[in-house]
Design a protein around this nucleic acid. Structure first.
Length: 414
DNA sequence: TCTGGGGTCCTAGGACCC
DNA sequence: TCTGGGGTCCTAGGACCC
């Protein structure tokens, strides 16, 4: 049997911990990053039931002494990168999952640094002493088990799963610690009396498939018996790029929809152009006042990355969705996503992104002009920053609920 | 518990091709 | 004209992850 060489490292309540690091007066106190909405909460705040995504008003009700802080987004980036760099000092086999979380395989470096548990202790010590941040680490033979171990280790702990005792460790834990079991699956399982991972493991494949579908049940059964084939993947590229904006309650009218879509398209297309990854499929999502949401999508003959083009296609799709839901007069969210991305078009001539942006659109000889305009905006922003120029983003109606700097932390590499 | 934003994967039905 | 089977792509919705 293999030995336990996979680490899962996870910074604890990351954004909140950074704030407490930067401002010592916040330490030990319930704090939340954000304002209108909670973007992150400290452990002291979580005790009160405060969760990310929660409206600020609700959070204040739950915890009147809660301290809201604005957020130091560039510090999150810097410290998240620094923590990952500590992992990279031990092994190049690091798979970053998000700003504050990564897997690492230390099989190849134990001769230099000692057994995996020693390495994990060293990492935790360095992150604490050099960066001032708490980090939890799980060590196990598989990614799934390492991930669960780090969750069990939180806050600020280390759990090593002995390969001889894996099922012993796993089977008493609640099912929703498993990767892929969220609220809906948890409820379905609970309805049939399945509460622990061990109970899931012993459920017959046939009844589980009926409950959850083939793919989900086969995957969960494998994980429950600790068969996790996933390997460390050091470089990921996203297969889609999207943006969304919550609107509160707004009338479903052009003067609301057009500028909002314009801004979303601008954000997305800037990224697509920067990485030369135009996409063929455009999906919009419209959420109504009652939070019911619908999506509409179209797959084009040629990939696009021009802002005006995406905005127009998105607007057509939104109008289709609205026309098919005539009873809905109020919308609460708009989203655009572009998928079916080109691998890379770096070798194509300099023009085609803009030209391909006009697939079979009669009478629109404006492809070239738009392409040139986009490139100009991109260059100005590269030199002077995002707000130096734009498609009236400053004149945008509703102030965004979440700062763009925060959104960028969640973007994946294209 | 009515709540933000960027992503991934699965399902199911239909179109279309061989 | 009816019949069978396999594969791929597209669309809409849903669940999940961080």
């Amino acid at each position: 049997m293999d030995s336990a060489t996979i680490l899962h490292a996870d910074l604890d309540a990351f954004y909140a911990s950074v704030e407490q690091l930067l401002d010592p007066s916040l330490r030990g106190k319930p704090i939340a990053v954000g304002g209108g909405v909670v973007l992150a909460a400290s452990y002291e705040a979580k005790v009160f039931g405060i969760r990310s995504g929660m409206p600020g008003r609700r959070a204040r009700e739950l915890c009147p002494q809660l301290v809201f802080v604005g957020g130091h987004f560039s510090e999150y980036r810097r410290l998240g990168d620094a923590a990952i760099a500590v992992l990279n000092d031990f092994t190049p086999l690091v798979e970053r999952i998000s700003i504050d979380e990564a897997f690492a395989d230390v099989a190849g470096c134990t001769h230099l640094f000692g057994p995996p548990a020693e390495i994990a202790r060293a990492i935790r010590h360095r992150v604490r002493s050099e960066l001032g941040l708490p980090i939890s680490i799980g060590v196990a033979r598989t990614k799934h088990l390492a991930k669960i171990a780090s969750q069990v280790a939180k806050p600020d702990g280390l759990v090593v799963v002995d390969p001889d005792r894996e099922l012993e460790f796993l089977h008493d834990l609640p099912v929703d610690l498993m990767w892929g079991v969220g609220p809906a699956t948890k409820a379905r399982l609970a309805a049939t009396g399945v509460l622990t991972i061990g109970q899931l493991a012993r459920t017959s494949g046939r009844s589980l498939r009926q409950l959850l579908g083939t793919a989900a049940s086969d995957k969960l059964t494998a994980l429950a018996w600790n068969r996790d084939p996933r390997e460390i993947r050091t470089h990921h590229r996203a297969n889609s790029a999207g943006a969304q904006s919550a609107l509160g309650r707004k009338p479903a009218e052009v003067h609301v929809i057009r500028p909002a879509l314009r801004h979303l398209a601008d954000r997305i297309c800037t990224r697509l152009r920067a990485r030369d990854r135009p996409g063929r499929t455009v999906t919009v999502r419209v959420r109504f006042a009652d939070l019911r949401a619908v999506t509409r999508s179209v797959t084009l003959d040629a990939p696009i990355s021009a802002t005006a083009m995406l905005a127009e296609i998105a607007e057509e799709l939104v109008h289709t969705a609205l026309a098919q839901n005539p009873g809905e007069k109020t919308i609460s969210l708009l989203a655009i996503s572009v998928s079916n991305l080109e691998e890379h078009v770096a070798l194509q001539l300099d023009l085609p992104l803009g030209l391909a942006d006009e697939p079979r659109r009669p009478g629109s000889g404006r492809g070239m002009a738009r392409w040139a305009a986009d490139r100009a905006v991109d260059r100005i922003r590269q030199r002077f920053g995002w707000d130096a120029v734009g498609y009236g983003s400053l004149a945008l109606g509703p102030p965004r609920a979440v700062p763009d700097a925060f959104r960028e932390l969640a973007e994946k590499e294209l």
